[in-house]
Design a protein around this nucleic acid. Structure first.
Lengths: 133, 133
DNA sequence: TTGCACCCTGGACCTGGGTCCAGAGTCAAG
DNA sequence: CTTGACTCTGGACCCAGGTCCAGGGTGCAA
């Protein structure tokens, strides 16, 4: 099984430019080349590219993924697990932050009649008021 | 009460460059100037700058804030409320998305013993497997 | 008057994760 | 052999939301 960059990209569900971008940025090893200079890929690279795609879905940055790939190559299960846990931690942080924002917005919206004097609009007031942080 | 850009920035808790950036980008009206060309601000501008800061905390983009400020000037309570509701909607969307990610990560971490053969690591397997997303 | 902190401008640069482009070369079907 | 689809390269550009810089001009206190 040997793939051109276009076939690889298609099978992995990414754009061709993205494959080259990943190569430039060390997420994929430099591809083998034909005499013409065309890149050639095998099953390994397809797996790796799909790994990257899945990790991105789980919220890992490309930087994270570079580490994950290195850890995976070293078969360092403990550190892979730790990395996943750290990522879980900051996903949780982001959720908490968004929930705080959500409840702030909800309170304001619920208190706003949606009509009448703008001085009575709690949304505008909350944003304008001197009080608070 | 009359403030230099530095005093304004300090009292609003933003950087001087940010104030100029907001002016360039239409979030603050062009400031009044001294004969020297120095910008001069009053209480109104401080309020407006704080409004911007608070709206950002609530998850509004600068684009959103531009609209919010316009709506506020028009005292259009209904549309302010609607904008807040839209924003709430996409905050909720982001929360849901992150929760999905969180539960995926949790499942994987819980299933991973944290040691042993890398072939048995569900995290690595989930990322590598053909079965996929 | 000197010295230092402050302010002015336009424009470059940053992060992340790509995307797009021109101009040139290559592959394969017919 | 031609044609159309594919690939190559380096580099520019995109988004948001700023941040930083050089090379100047000001304000004010001692």
């Amino acid at each position: 099984m040997s793939l051109s960059i276009g076939e690889l990209a298609k099978q992995a569900g990414v754009a061709i430019d993205t494959v080259r971008f990943y190569e430039r940025n060390g997420l994929l090893a430099p591809a083998g080349r034909l005499a013409s200079g065309y890149r050639r890929y095998g099953a390994e690279e397809l797996k790796r590219l799909r790994f990257i795609r899945r990790a991105k879905v789980l919220g890992f940055s490309l930087d994270d993924i570079r580490s994950l790939l290195a850890l995976s190559a070293e078969r360092d299960v403990a550190r892979v697990r730790a990395a996943a846990q750290r990522k879980l931690g900051n996903i949780e942080l982001r959720i908490t932050e968004l929930e705080r924002i959500r409840s702030g917005l909800r309170t304001l919206i619920d208190a706003c009649p949606g009509h009448g004097r703008s001085e009575a609009c709690p949304i505008l007031n909350a944003l304008s008021q001197e009080q608070d942080a």
